[in-house]
Design a protein around this nucleic acid. Structure first.
Length: 439
RNA sequence: GUCCCCAUCGUCUAGAGGCCUAGGACAACACCCUUUCACGGUGUGGACACGAGUUCGAAUCUCGUUGGGGACGCCA
């Protein structure tokens, strides 16, 4: 998202690249998921996505050149041997660095990995756009693998080639990549390529302050869609994790595309806070035009909305309108929608105290004639009921609750009179009569 | 363990030497509004991790300590 916003805010291009070099872990559905997530959030990429799995020829050509120049070498150490080596280093409390066992070996067969030679002395430094100068001692960067035994390149290698080939100017990524940066810079330098700008973003941690993962709820952006968050809310919430714009809390994507900038990105990790997400979510439900929300529901919650297909749009939209401002998630909205447009509720009068029932019944009966005769508009109904109550000096509260229960079967609902109008005279009278019968 | 990064209310953050008896938002609590639930309004409690410096003056600069995170793969 920060990459997208930065590209848009600076008039650049936002490119999508699928880094699927590891064939065992790459599946088409992951790509679909990424595309669907970006599309859902409204972040479209500018050119055809690049798939690394289709660029192996290019990578091999570069690796071949490196090998020929003696800047890289074949290594026949097996994973088992390396594991054993790691254990040994650990036991000796020494940090593991590949010791260059095969560095000077001749005639290593094709069934081997290729490692890049890295310098043993000196430092590799870069100026992070967010954090300033960061430097690493080259002795801490080992001869890392650029190509696996199965001839697939590794991430640190292929992303350098692609960033260069695609003319990437800015690499914005999580700060868990800071350690990869010296490796990549060394490769750029070995290849004589221009080093791009780097900006390492603070990470998002779970409530336990560990790197966000499956156990914190959602593994995929799309799961938030399923949970019933609006894309506007997700973007708005996420952008405030690590970035600020004075005291402003509410942002639209369009606003962000205008004034997102790299200054005012924090350095400290942020904890994902569902409480605040829900608040932002509620805000966007209040903000969204009901027709647009209706469309959204029909698109992403098609199966839940199908039962309302016979309801005409203006009526359905009005129903959504009187509910949307009170909910934080789509399931809540759907639930209330069902109270308004769904089947008649089961009137459980058992939850009332026996001595209260006559009064409730009396209240329902009292206004039944009005409901049958008055023009069925919310303001007309409200005015009529209130005038009547004024004469007797009674409060609206108990009466409203009685009718709320009668027409929804529950005690929570949109405003009573607006709901009555949306439900319509026939439904209301039928439900009120059923309620009276249940008492 | 080694290397790297970070450190303001419970959480997200404002703050780039005097504007800070540290501001906003979420959450909490109280009150108000109110036909329920929300919304909204008002208010309360709540933080510069610690210790040395530098300076007339430090949340802001330096160093150290402590704490947290990340990396250490033939994953990305």
């Amino acid at each position: 998202m920060f990459n997208y916003l930065y590209a848009k805010a600076t008039g650049g291009k936002f490119l999508l690249r699928i880094e699927d070099t590891d064939r065992e872990r790459s599946e088409d559905r992951f790509t679909d998921d990424i595309k669907a997530s970006l599309t859902w959030l409204g972040m479209d990429w500018d050119e055809e996505p690049i798939f690394q799995s289709r660029r192996f020829r290019r990578y091999h050509e570069v690796i071949e050149g490196l090998l020929n120049k003696g800047l890289a070498y074949r290594c026949e150490c097996t994973p088992q041997e390396l594991d054993a080596l790691r254990k040994r280093y650990e036991a000796e409390k020494k940090p593991f660095r590949y010791p260059g066992i095969c560095r000077d070996k001749k005639n290593v067969g094709e069934k081997s990995v290729v490692r890049i030679k890295t310098p043993d002395t000196g430092d590799t430094m870069f100026t992070d756009l967010i954090r300033g100068d960061i430097s690493f001692a080259n002795k801490d960067v080992d001869d890392w693998v650029v190509m696996r035994t199965d001839k697939a390149p590794t991430y640190n290698f292929s992303c350098v080639i692609d960033d260069s080939d695609q003319g990437i100017t800015h690499v914005l990524r999580g700060d868990d990549h800071i350690n990869n940066t010296p490796k990549q810079i060394l490769l750029y330098q070995t290849l004589g390529l221009k080093v791009p700008n780097f900006a390492h973003l603070p990470m998002i941690l779970g409530a336990d302050r560990q790197k966000l993962s499956k156990r914190h709820g959602a593994a995929s952006t799309l799961e938030y869609r399923t949970m019933g968050y609006l894309p506007e809310a997700i973007v708005n919430f996420l952008v405030r994790l690590g970035w600020s714009h004075g005291d402003q809390e509410i942002f639209t994507l369009d606003e962000l595309k205008k004034f997102f900038a790299l200054d005012h990105i924090g350095k400290a990790n942020a904890v994902f806070n569902t409480e605040k997400l829900n608040w932002v979510s509620g805000h966007w439900f209040r903000e969204m035009p009901s027709a647009k929300l209706a469309e959204y529901l029909k698109k992403y919650f098609a199966s839940e909305m199908e039962k309302y297909s016979s309801i005409e749009d203006s009526r359905l939209n009005r129903g959504i309108e009187i509910i949307q401002s009170k909910v934080k998630l789509i399931p809540e909205l759907l639930e209330q929608l069902d109270c308004v447009f769904g089947p008649d509720p089961v009137h459980d009068a058992g939850k009332f105290k026996p001595e209260d029932k006559p009064k409730i019944k009396e209240n329902l009966l009292r206004f039944l004639p009005l409901l049958k005769t008055a023009e069925f508009k919310q303001d007309v109904l409200e005015k009529a009921v209130k005038e009547d109550l004024l004469k007797s000096g009674e409060k609206l509260g108990p009466i409203a609750q009685a009718f709320r229960w009668a027409v929804t079967g529950g005690r929570i609902s949109p405003g009573l009179f607006e709901m009555l109008e949306v439900q319509g005279r026939d439904v209301v009278i039928r439900r009120v009569e059923k309620a009276i019968a249940a008492l």
